[in-house]
Amino acid sequence: MNHAAPAAPAPRAALLPRLSFLRLSLLAAIVLCCASWVYILNVDSNQSHSFFSAETWRRGVSFLKDLAGAGSTATPAFAQASAWRETGRLAYQTLAMAVLGIGIAALVALATFIFGARTLMTGELAPYGASAWRALYIAARAFFTLTRSVPELVWAMIAVFIFSPGILPGAIALGIHNAGILGKLSSEVVEGLDPRPMRALRSSGAGRFQVLLYGVLPEALPRFTTYLLYRWEVIIRTTIVVGFVAAGGLGQEFRLAMSHFHYTTLSLILIWYLILVAAVDIAAVLLRRLAR
């Protein structure tokens, strides 16, 4: 770019540090972090024993020993083939819950993301009767905000009021939350698209649906798939958490093992959890290569 040389900066700017929005934000973030630590350490020191005491260390070591099965005469769960099979079945369910969750999220997001793209719903590319489409745009954005602001776990707590415990309420909870995330991200992809090809299609007589089909979707869908696979990596980590309340897969067993002090079963569940996470991470990398 060929800008003229900027005028000499005002002398005051050199003397006072510029109080820009960024500086203020950084300062606010630092103050917030310090205040939070003061609050947390204060609460902690009012407890019967502080986190920073020898007691914590002793407890931590004995917990690790319990996980390893030391000090108990029983065969640890991770040394029994039957326990591996049993938790393996739960891991299979957990994987299914994750896939179903991302499937629901993808279908809901695919059905709604076009309505969340400002550039398509308002302005020159918008269909006639713009106010109705504008209302639809606002509704889509409100839907994304509501669904993604509420964490999966809370959706799961609500879902078990409606559905019988099992994979389904967990998958629905994962689906609702991630539909909001995927929908918002994909709408923003559409908004960021170069408008010139769409305008060209439009001015050469293409209908609005044809603009969508040939101008928007071929550009947006590959990005959508990439986001989908990224979210899948996150979802597999969250499935166990949703299972705490939705009573499906490894999460439920984790909760039971925790409350019955079956610590070696707990280690076995954690091993399966790490296997699942690693497997999904690798699968997502391979699938992303296909998406390119």
Partner: peptide
């Protein structure tokens, strides 16, 4: 690879209920 809530539960079970465990 481990979700924050799973870490939280492990820390609380191992070390006791403290806001530092949440952090």
């Amino acid at each position: 690879s481990v979700h924050e809530l799973v870490w939280a539960w492990l820390f609380v079970a191992a070390l006791g209920l403290s806001p530092v465990a949440a952090v």
